[in-house]
């Protein structure tokens, strides 16, 4: 073992690796171009491919105005994009600020504010978490998202899913859409007996710091698609941890603190009552009158196709 160790020592020292992580990577790419640098879910990335991807991120970040010395936050698990982004930041001479992917709320806003990060590269799952902190983090200009690792939990007793698909013109800006949907949710909850719910702009509806509903707004062509999940009662996450492994000692940190209408209002509400409440609030608040309907023929074809894809795994 000691012979091997000495050799490794000499390789590192004698090789004259430059000080500076960006330059050091370039040197390793020169030496190992075709060798495998990363392996991820059966796919490999060579040193050269790693550098090319890092270069693309670096020049992309430069296009967004990121310069030497700027801080760039990172909130990602161990995926290749972590390596691309990390070395891109190093090549820019910028400063990487990676932080724990289980952080929530104030933990994140403290780090973003204290470091003065101008951009964050994060898993798409965290976009909502970050967006709602943007008002508190004036230095943060860009939220760059990667990976398709979102998880939505469904529970027949606890969760209601509301989707709104509409012309963008129905709301104007995305800001306006989020604000109005937020207000509709707060009013719906009030109608169901939850008096102190509040909406954090671009984020979620909470009661006393605990999440009771989430809003995710997407855009596609001329449409807005809003996905809203509301908790009728506090969801029991335990069965889900049987499917998605989370070490027992960090289970309570894996999910944001949550509550539900039953806990917050002190009485249970049925799914039907929720539907009626949100329908009447949409009418009262936004003048939107709902008429019961079914999917059209075109939509049914799209529905069958999407179902097949959803069950394909």
């Amino acid at each position: 073992m000691f012979g091997r160790k000495r050799k490794a020592q000499e390789a590192a020292r004698g090789g004259g690796l430059p000080i500076g992580l960006g330059r050091a990577l370039e040197e390793m790419v020169r030496r190992h171009r075709r060798r495998e640098a990363l392996v991820f879910e059966g796919k490999t990335v060579t040193y050269q491919e790693l550098e090319e991807s890092a270069n693309r991120v670096a020049s992309g970040l430069a296009d967004y105005g990121i310069r030497k010395g700027d801080r760039v936050a990172m909130m990602m698990p161990n995926i290749p994009e972590f390596a691309y982004t990390f070395f891109a930041i190093q090549k820019l001479g910028a400063v990487a600020v990676p932080f724990n992917t289980m952080y929530k709320g104030r933990e994140i806003s403290f780090i973003l504010k204290d470091s003065g990060a101008r951009a964050i590269v994060c898993l798409s799952n965290f976009a909502n978490l970050i967006n709602e902190l943007r008002e508190d983090c004036p230095d943060l200009e860009h939220v760059i998202v990667t990976g398709q690792r979102t998880l939505v939990f469904l529970d027949p007793d606890a969760t209601v899913n509301v989707q709104i698909v509409c012309e963008r013109s129905a709301f104007g800006s995305s800001d306006g859409a989020l604000r109005e949907i937020g207000v509709v949710l707060v009013d719906t909850l009030a109608e169901l007996g939850v008096k102190d719910a509040w909406y954090k702009h671009q984020g979620a509806v909470r009661v006393g710091g605990r999440k009771i509903a989430t809003i995710l707004l997407s855009e596609i062509e001329n449409l807005y698609v809003a996905n809203v999940v509301t908790f009728l009662k506090q969801m029991d996450a335990e069965p889900l941890f049987k499917v998605l492994y989370v070490p027992p000692e960090i289970k309570d940190k894996a999910l944001e603190p949550m509550t539900g209408i039953a806990e917050a209002a002190g009485n249970e509400v049925t799914f039907e009552q929720f539907k009626d409440a949100i329908s009447s609030v949409l009418a009262a608040r936004l003048g939107i009158h709902l008429e019961p309907g079914e999917l059209t023929r075109d939509e049914l074809i799209a529905y069958e196709k999407n179902r097949a894809l959803a069950n394909r795994i």
Binding site: T150, D155, P156, V162, I164
Partner: peptide, 14 residues
């Protein structure tokens, strides 16, 4: 424009 209100009758993960 459409509003879909739905739930799943079993526990699920999307």
């Amino acid at each position: 424009n459409t509003v879909i209100v739905q739930r799943s009758r079993t526990r699920g993960i999307i």
